[in-house]
Design a protein around this nucleic acid. Structure first.
Lengths: 340, 340
DNA sequence: CTGAAAGCGCTTACAG
DNA sequence: CTGAAAGCGCTTACAG
């Protein structure tokens, strides 16, 4: 089946390319093209399964009906889920999504954004490394439609959709405290991301509310690159006297998995000896031994709201003010903290 | 920062667009453009951070440096992982990937493929619903570069990268048999996918090798749309006399999760009463209670090999014969089958 | 060594 | 009601 172009249709039907283009873009009526001609064109197009070249159309119209998604890692189930919702919603609105993972490398993130701009995406959804303030500023300065998800730049006015990280760990830590735990450790990433800072603050806030003196040694920070080994080492320290913990809060799902793995290896009973709670979760966290109490994130809402906002901006009917959305998180209470 | 185009550079530097284009595409030397001119152009481009419009370039050159990825579901960790590897490798070779999820809908898959073709992707990587023989045939007839992953059409000659599903369940089932289990149930999806058929055959083959009479009632098939409820019902039946199972093989990771969830609810001891093994896994399967023995799939290889083959085809230096690659799977032995 | 010109396949004012 | 023509921003034979 040979590919057919606009000009082929025009020639075969003895009309102009203009007419064909108009009709096929549903502008036949408003341009008062006779029903007869319209029918002929539509029938012909269908029969020869005509499909417009989106590159040409995009070049001509100055937009591509594509949105770019820049995330840290598509293989992280959290972002994979968000990507799924974004894709579904975008597709429904006629948009295709192209995606790229930055792997937390700010330089790479910058290149990815540029590369997407070259491809003339109509808008961008970004879960930033948060080390690209200038790039983001420049998008904003150029009035380019974009929305930040999961991570935003707190003192830049942009549209964003994030979750309440502070409340998340606060709730999680308070849960442990209310169950009588008092030596609560926090396993987290080294500083750098605002989300991580918020999770730390939430943890500290809960301690404060319960009148517990914070102990620096109970906070263990690991590097992303080497988190498994460093988590293992951290756990080993945290369970030792004089400051042995009776509970642990983990700042991400993979830290939780690594931590629980090590606790098992050390034959430490969870939750009897050490209770644990996770910020975010993996799919089988309800099946682990014990099932893990976790702060759950609303991936569907993040994706859907982000697309909504982005579309408003692309269409130009977004309000002038930037919109920040902070979504609520929930605490899924399972067995890893002991009984209530 | 105003966007700068080819013609701007040409005008400002008093050269032609041709020269600029040639130089910026690294064809300066082969066209004997003076070093002086080349330097000037490169410097200017860098200073004004010129980036070519990929739509225009693509239209002009008849290719887009984009590859399309069509999978059942980006939120499935298995495909998410593959997508990650594909993306990484493609990016390294200068390609961007656009993706779409078919959600196992053949009609949708067809539309997605068309839509990607419209966008002038240079090649396609498809994990097909396997209900689109014609579409695939037509790609092949048109010599369009593509490679099938995870699922192929057994009697169509195409390039593909799959895993040895048959060996997977055979190995898994044989493992259970070698541990003395004899009433082994199989929880799987309703027929339709070749991968699923192969997994069934592998299960049956293992029984045959061990001289075990297959019992139809021990095979429980669920629909994808309603798998959770149907798995629950299936488990309830399978653990009942007279044909109560002493082991279960699950055909996918999500069936395993649903099944284990129900076994726990029923207070059935795994592995003492019922041993289980999973084809494919979720990230926390080593942390579940008990840790789940699982057939693990080589996501990295699937992704990397697929891109390799696709690139050969795009570049035109692929051998004329179609290449089928069947990758080995491994059995990760954990505690859900009892001790060895 | 370098440039004028055609072409990629569309869209869209403008004219009649 | 419909068409000729310009334009989107590139690339690339071809000519000199």
């Amino acid at each position: 089946m040979k590919r057919v172009f606009l000009k082929d249709i025009a020639k075969d039907l003895n009309v102009s390319k203009t007419t064909v283009s108009l009709v096929l873009n549903n502008k036949g009526d408003e341009n008062k093209i006779s029903q007869d001609t319209q029918q002929k064109i539509i029938a012909y197009a269908k029969e020869h399964s005509y499909v417009p070249n989106q590159l040409a159309r995009g070049l001509s119209r100055g937009k591509s009906e594509t949105i770019g998604l820049v995330i840290p890692n598509i293989s992280d189930i959290f972002y994979a889920r968000i990507a799924g919702f974004i894709e579904r919603k975008a597709k429904k609105l006629g948009y295709t999504v192209i995606f790229s993972s930055s792997y937390e490398d700010p330089k790479k993130e910058g290149e990815l954004i540029q590369s997407m701009l070259n491809r003339q995406v109509d808008g961008l959804i970004i879960a930033s490394t948060q080390q690209n303030r200038e790039e983001i500023q420049s998008l904003k300065a150029n009035d380019f439609p974009f929305v930040l998800i999961d991570r935003h730049y707190p003192d830049n006015e942009t549209d964003y959709v994030i979750v309440d990280n502070f409340e998340g760990t606060k709730k999680a830590t308070a849960h442990l405290l209310s169950l009588g735990r008092r030596k609560i450790g926090f396993v987290t990433l080294k500083p750098g991301l605002e989300v991580i800072r918020q999770r730390l603050l939430g943890y500290q806030k809960a301690l404060e509310i319960f009148g517990i003196e914070p102990i620096d040694e109970l906070i263990h920070e690991v590097s992303r690159e080497n988190y498994e080994e460093e988590t293992v080492n951290g756990i080993k320290q945290l369970v030792q006297f004089p400051n042995a913990v009776d509970a642990l809060v983990f700042a991400t799902h993979y830290l939780t998995a690594a931590g629980l793995r090590e606790l098992k290896r050390l034959n430490i009973k969870v939750p009897q000896e050490v209770a644990i709670v996770s910020f975010d979760e993996l799919e089988a966290f309800d099946l682990t031994d014990p099932a893990i109490t976790a702060v759950t994130q609303p991936a569907a809402d993040i994706g859907n709201v982000a697309v909504d906002i982005l579309m408003d901006k692309i269409k130009g009917d977004a309000p002038l003010t930037q919109m920040g959305r902070v979504l609520n998180i929930e605490l899924a209470i399972r067995r890893s903290c002991g009984s209530v």
